[in-house]
Amino acid sequence: MSLDLRKLEHLVAVAEEGGFTRAAERLHLSQQALSTSVRTLERHVGVQLLDRGHQHVTPTPAGQALIDDARALGAQALAALDRARRIGRGQAGHLRVGHTPAVTAEEVVDLLTRAGTEEQGIRAHVRQLFPDELREQLLTGACDLGLSRAMPAGTGLTRARVAEHRLRVAVPAGHPLAARSAVALADLRGQPLTVWGEPGSSAYTDLLIGLCRQAGVEPDVRRNPVQGTPPVTAVTATGRIAFVTAPPGPAAGGAAHVVDLDPPVHVPVHALWPAHTTCPGRDLFLGRAGGPPEDGAGRERAGRERAG
């Protein structure tokens, strides 16, 4: 039995818009045509996919399962079309890389250099994206590879650890810890710390909190009010301490100082990519810089890592 991708797109739109009226406007269809399409899909699947209430339409459990998979299928179809277009236009050697703010542009370039992408004729295009944007661009085929710290894969994506970087702390230049050659995590007790995501909604924030708790410190974390900038700039924006992976010494034009953690602590860089898609540049990168995809025991490790 084959599935009509267009009808799956209709189902996703109704679920996302919460009803047929707005979904029909979004899809430039009549409500009758959209309703007929979804009914046809339900008959094809053999189960009810939507609960049609008076005020709101919501997916049934079966409908939600199909919607989750439909998004991944749609991404794979778009990625396949894009790959064919790029090959036809002589652009097969391109690699589009997105990275979250927690992974700096310098770290991305270092990973690409170690993978030897340029030597192999792969032209990389790099851009910074927030986690939700990165996930969307990966699923829609706009990005071939995502780099993040501890961001979970979720439906439709595959994840592998590709690097580890030494974690350090950045403090204001006049802070008492700035004169130290190294500090322990326990030295941060009582110090307000800046993070980039709210606890419970950011895997990297949860990882950092977990590291502090392992050292016996209950961290006082506050979300950085300035989003999207390199991690070390959080110090100049807030006057508080921040975790960074920048090299030790003066930073941010002398306004901050980066200090080693002793004993050393390392944090991961994860690669994410759309499952069941092909990209020669990505395969080269993962073959030289990456580890095996995390599934089974790997996903269990990732879950423990997220919990700290």
Results as ranks from 00 to 15, higher is better:
227 Q>H: 13
250 P>G: 00
228 G>N: 13
248 P>R: 11
227 Q>I: 14
235 V>D: 00
228 G>L: 08
235 V>Y: 00
247 P>L: 10
253 G>E: 06
229 T>H: 13
232 V>L: 15
261 L>A: 09
233 T>V: 07
233 T>N: 15
255 A>Y: 07
234 A>Y: 08
247 P>R: 06
244 V>Q: 04
255 A>E: 15
244 V>I: 09
249 G>Y: 12
237 A>I: 05
237 A>H: 15
246 A>Q: 14
236 T>H: 07
242 A>R: 01
249 G>L: 08
235 V>R: 01
236 T>M: 02
256 A>E: 08
250 P>W: 05
236 T>Y: 05
229 T>F: 14
234 A>L: 02
244 V>L: 00
251 A>G: 03
246 A>G: 03
255 A>H: 03
231 P>S: 05
246 A>M: 00
245 T>D: 02
226 V>R: 07
258 V>L: 09
232 V>F: 01
242 A>K: 02
236 T>F: 04
245 T>E: 10
241 I>D: 01
258 V>A: 04
239 G>C: 09
233 T>S: 15
230 P>V: 04
229 T>D: 05
240 R>F: 03
263 P>C: 04
234 A>C: 08
253 G>C: 13
243 F>M: 00
228 G>T: 09
237 A>T: 14
249 G>P: 02
256 A>M: 14
251 A>P: 01
244 V>D: 06
261 L>G: 04
262 D>W: 14
237 A>M: 04
237 A>G: 01
241 I>F: 10
235 V>S: 08
233 T>R: 13
258 V>Y: 07
259 V>P: 07
239 G>T: 03
231 P>H: 14
249 G>E: 09
242 A>M: 09
244 V>A: 02
228 G>D: 13
229 T>G: 06
250 P>V: 02
240 R>L: 12
260 D>G: 01
230 P>I: 11
246 A>H: 13
228 G>C: 05
258 V>D: 06
250 P>D: 14
253 G>I: 05
229 T>V: 11
262 D>P: 04
240 R>T: 11
231 P>R: 11
229 T>I: 12
234 A>W: 01
250 P>K: 02
228 G>V: 14
243 F>E: 03
232 V>A: 15
253 G>V: 03
226 V>W: 01
232 V>S: 14
261 L>D: 08
229 T>P: 02
231 P>F: 08
232 V>Q: 15
230 P>K: 11
254 G>V: 13
228 G>I: 10
239 G>M: 06
243 F>Y: 02
246 A>I: 01
260 D>N: 09
245 T>P: 07
256 A>C: 10
263 P>S: 04
254 G>L: 06
235 V>K: 00
258 V>M: 04
250 P>A: 13
258 V>N: 02
257 H>G: 00
247 P>K: 05
226 V>G: 05
260 D>E: 09
242 A>I: 03
233 T>H: 08
229 T>A: 12
229 T>M: 13
232 V>R: 15
236 T>I: 06
253 G>T: 03
261 L>E: 07
252 A>I: 00
254 G>E: 04
260 D>M: 08
237 A>F: 10
245 T>H: 09
249 G>N: 03
255 A>V: 00
253 G>F: 05
260 D>C: 07
259 V>C: 05
253 G>Q: 11
260 D>H: 14
227 Q>L: 14
259 V>K: 01
245 T>W: 01
257 H>T: 13
245 T>Q: 09
263 P>L: 12
247 P>W: 02
238 T>I: 12
232 V>Y: 11
